[in-house]
């Protein structure tokens, strides 16, 4: 069995080396298809990370009215500090908010030009991540009724928007996956049929000496598998290079503000993509050779 596998691998390697241009072209085509799929997955992974981060942000911004009295604000701070689930309460004045926003890269000058009054004073409340959405809604509801409070932001709307974006991304990635699967089947199947035609003499000899159809097909299946795996691997390498370039250009401040650093595909995802490539390549080769190899 080991010798059989070794012989098959040897024949597959020999076939690929002798037809390297054909196989290289096929691998490149597959890599392009897998790059599209990988890029979609990368976007989904990063959006999911942002959604995850903000879903458990545990933060509430209580925006105060301009005419809020200092005593009311102090009382509110004290009350919030005693509220179960609240870990930290911090007052941010209009001037401080103006100063914080003026340090944001890109729009710093425009923000600095705005008057202090454009930035309402607020109380930033940190809440334990395990506080339920229902409890958070209750807190928001009670705070909104206080006379010194103008608005309460729990960032739930943002999280919901992100979740919708992620769901859309997943659906798009699913569609892309179908396109990629179809292109792998078409590219590898055609390559294998072409390779078989070019190696007709070899196939004829194999049949002559008593090779079974599975023996004849096995190196072609291995070549299809290798093509699929290599296509996916090249795509991951390309994607990683693109990711490094992109990450170096993303503003560090923006990453900090969002609270999530850009991340590449997890290793399980990368290995999974290569495995799917190999599996699809084998399937495509098997389908391509189905009616072509008979005794």
């Amino acid at each position: 069995m080991f010798d059989f596998s070794q012989a098959t691998a040897r024949r597959a390697k020999r076939g690929m080396l002798r037809e390297w241009r054909l196989h290289a072209l096929s691998v490149f085509s597959l890599a392009v298809a897998f790059v599209c799929l990988g890029a979609a997955l990368l976007v989904v992974v990063n959006l999911s990370a942002i959604e995850e981060r903000w879903a458990h942000a545990g933060r509430v911004s209580v925006y105060l009215r301009d005419d809020a009295k200092v005593a009311d604000v102090d009382a509110l701070k004290t009350a919030l500090t005693k509220t179960p689930g609240v870990t930290q309460v911090r007052y941010v004045s209009s001037a401080q908010a103006h100063s914080d926003f003026s340090q944001i890269g890109g729009a710093a000058d425009a923000l600095a030009a705005l008057p202090h009054e454009a930035f309402p004073a607020s109380i930033e409340v940190d809440i334990r991540p395990d506080v339920s959405t229902a409890d958070l809604t209750t807190i928001k509801s009670k705070l909104s009724q206080l006379p010194s409070v103008d608005d309460v932001e729990t960032y739930e709307a943002w999280t919901e928007r992100l979740a919708r974006l992620v769901r859309g991304g997943v659906a798009a990635a699913g569609l892309l996956a179908l396109v990629v699967f179809a292109s792998v089947l078409a590219v590898v199947g055609s390559t294998m049929r072409l390779a078989l035609q070019r190696r007709r003499a070899e196939v004829e000899v194999l049949k002559l000496v008593g090779a079974t159809p599975s023996f004849v097909k096995s190196p072609f299946l291995m070549e299809g598998s290798a093509q699929g795996a290599m296509g996916a691997a090249v795509a991951i390498a390309l994607l990683f290079a693109l990711f490094l370039i992109m990450r170096s250009r993303v503003d560090l401040e923006l990453s900090r503000m969002i609270g999530v650093e850009p991340a590449f595909l997890p290793w399980q995802g990368a290995v999974g993509m290569i495995a799917v490539g190999a599996l699809l390549g084998t399937l495509a080769a098997a389908l391509g050779l189905r009616k072509l190899v008979t005794v």
Partner: peptide, 11 residues
């Protein structure tokens, strides 16, 4: 050798 490889003989 191909005539023996199809028989699965050791290398």
């Amino acid at each position: 050798a191909i005539a023996l490889e199809v028989l699965g003989l050791p290398q």
